[in-house]
């Protein structure tokens, strides 16, 4: 079955849809966690430390966290590899463009490929910045996420990179969520408007929720 799914364009699209939805679920949880920064260093740092002790005593320290990381890494790889392979196929299937050009599809639809590449690059930067701390501007203090976030967004380029990536994320989700529903066969004529609305609301909420953090730091609400 795995072979049939991976070898078919329809199956590979389903892999993209499922991995995308896994990442989307994670992003919702991630955004809710981020918003705790507006309730002070105590609550935010406590939440961050709790992430490492989830599931105890059944799970050992950080086991749950690493389990989530492994699932997410698998989702990112599956999403990116199928996107790459399908894109290559798509470009080969239309080797010649029309002489008469006209604008095609919506902005969100047209930017899925490059938007995805931008998000992938952002992900690397984001992990090195706030998880590993290697590209962190200023001093990175392991175990002090609140201070790290504040020192990060006190630098203009961190804000630029982050906000640009979150706008790309919103566009990606806008077309991606609705597409995933179609790919998994969940769409229908009566449900189409509802699915598009959910996609737009998710895109808006996630972008606004994530962008709120650097904006909070810049405006001094978080310091």
């Amino acid at each position: 079955m795995a072979r049939t799914v991976w070898d078919s364009t329809v199956g590979k699209k389903a892999v993209m849809a499922v991995s995308g939805l896994i990442m989307l679920l994670y992003l919702i949880a991630h955004m809710i966690g981020n918003l705790k920064i507006f309730f002070g260093a105590g609550e935010f740092d406590h939440y961050a430390h709790w992430l490492r002790t989830v599931g105890e005593p059944f799970m050992h320290y950080e086991w749950t966290l690493w389990l989530i990381r492994v699932v997410l890494a698998a989702a990112v790889v599956a999403h990116a590899v199928s996107a790459y392979q399908l894109s290559r196929l798509d470009l080969r299937a239309r080797p010649r463009t029309y002489v008469h050009k006209r604008p095609r599809a919506g902005y969100a639809t047209r930017t899925m490929r490059w938007g995805g590449v931008i998000l992938g690059l952002f992900l690397v930067w984001h992990l090195l910045d706030l998880t590993a701390g290697t590209v962190h501007p200023g001093t990175f203090r392991p175990g002090h996420p609140y201070r790290n976030v504040v020192s990060d967004f006190s630098h203009w380029y961190s804000n630029v990179v982050y906000i640009a990536a979150m706008l790309a994320l919103g566009l990606h989700i806008r077309h991606g969520f609705w597409s995933a529903a179609q790919t998994l066969g969940a769409g229908s004529r009566t449900r189409d408007r509802a699915l598009k609305t959910v996609a737009n609301v998710l895109a808006l909420l996630l972008t606004a929720g994530f962008v709120a953090v650097p904006v909070g730091v810049m405006t001094g609400v978080v310091s």
Binding site: V10, L86, Q182, T183
Partner: peptide
């Protein structure tokens, strides 16, 4: 050798 669907509509 047809391409895949990206739901552009």
């Amino acid at each position: 050798g047809f391409g895949g669907c990206t739901l552009t509509g």
